[in-house]
């Protein structure tokens, strides 16, 4: 089944990849009065060869789109980048992508161009987004010379901001997934992790609506406030 869908997706994307217009990529959006209940959000997860952004590389990108407050399962992104020259023995154990799967990946440039088109400049959310942002920006810069700023939001910040009293054991994705009883089909698989992050985002957006946080701007302000609160507590 999965194979079938992968094949089908590959066919659908087959046309797109290799036929891009690098000069005419979608304009990244800015934080404004977009209605959260309507706008499209990208939830993304990367797999990398390690944790060090200056030396490690991106292996796979999984992303899911939320639009109108729901996850559209036909609007997903699951790519393995072709990086055969990388030595990936260290992290293969964590995410289960072996050298063979890597070589089957798409040509890096094509894949990244496709990603930018698919993202459509929409806000990007990730769990511990600073990590994903750093890696993705570095990769886009190195491969495409692309350096335009996108909106990034951290789901790891969003959740405690909206559920301040929840008694979550730790600060990891698994902790929140456990807290809400979510099932992760294949942990450390970019697409599966992205889906779980997106599910958590849906929970957060539902709560935001109830707290009368309606626009992207209001949400960004809430996160900003949360960050300041946290910094204050630190001192």
């Amino acid at each position: 089944m999965l194979e079938y869908i992968k094949q089908w997706l590959a066919q659908r994307r087959g046309g797109a990849i290799g036929d891009h217009d690098p000069g005419n990529l979608p304009e990244p959006k800015t934080v404004a009065e977009q209605q959260l209940s309507r706008c499209r959000l990208i939830v993304l997860d990367l797999e990398t060869t390690g944790l060090n952004a200056s030396k490690d590389e991106v292996i796979a990108i999984g992303a899911v789109a939320i639009e109108g407050g729901v996850i559209h399962l036909d609007d997903q992104f699951d790519l393995i980048l072709r990086r055969p020259e990388l030595d990936i023995r260290e992290t293969v154990l964590i995410h289960g992508i072996g050298p063979e799967a890597l070589t089957q990946g798409h040509e890096t440039e094509d894949a990244l161009l496709y990603l930018l088109e698919w993202m459509n400049g929409d806000p990007v959310l990730a769990y511990h987004s600073a990590f994903d942002q750093k890696f993705l920006e570095k990769t886009l810069k190195a491969q495409l010379g692309y350096a335009r700023p996108h909106i990034w939001m951290d789901v790891a910040e969003l959740l405690p901001a909206l559920f301040p009293n929840s008694n979550v054991k730790g600060r990891g994705l698994d902790d929140w997934a456990d807290f809400f009883g979510l099932e992760v089909s294949e942990r450390h698989h970019a697409a599966a992790d992205a889906l779980v992050t997106a599910e958590l985002t849906l929970i957060a957006l539902n709560k935001a609506r109830k707290n009368n946080v309606k626009t992207l701007k209001e949400l960004a302000e809430k996160l900003h406030y949360q960050r300041r609160l946290k910094n204050m507590q630190r001192y």
Partner: peptide, 21 residues
């Protein structure tokens, strides 16, 4: 059938409802 399942997956959305929604 796989084709029917794929048809479902292509058209499905995932929605969240909090307790009591």
């Amino acid at each position: 059938d796989d084709t029917h399942l794929a048809h479902f997956a292509e058209h499905a959305t995932l929605r969240f409802y909090a307790d009591e929604d």
